[in-house]
Amino acid sequence: MKITVAGIAKEYPQGLTVRKLIESENVETPEYVTVTINDDFVESGAFDSTVLNEGDNVEFLYFMGGGR
């Protein structure tokens, strides 16, 4: 199935969970990443139970603490 991750559409296996996607995309600090699917937040407690569907648009939002 085709899903779009951080703006790039790619083929992913059926039944992929958010947790598995985080692992396969080598997300930095995976414990603290915010995930949205189709412009809705996914609670971090639901990463294992949320299965992605064809055409989904996934974004990873990262903490960025610097500034001075």
Partner: peptide, 15 residues
């Protein structure tokens, strides 16, 4: 809304 709570201290690097 985006980042619910600060990460635990020293968990995410600063500059």
């Amino acid at each position: 809304c985006v980042f619910k709570e600060p990460p635990p201290k020293d968990a995410v690097p600063t500059c």
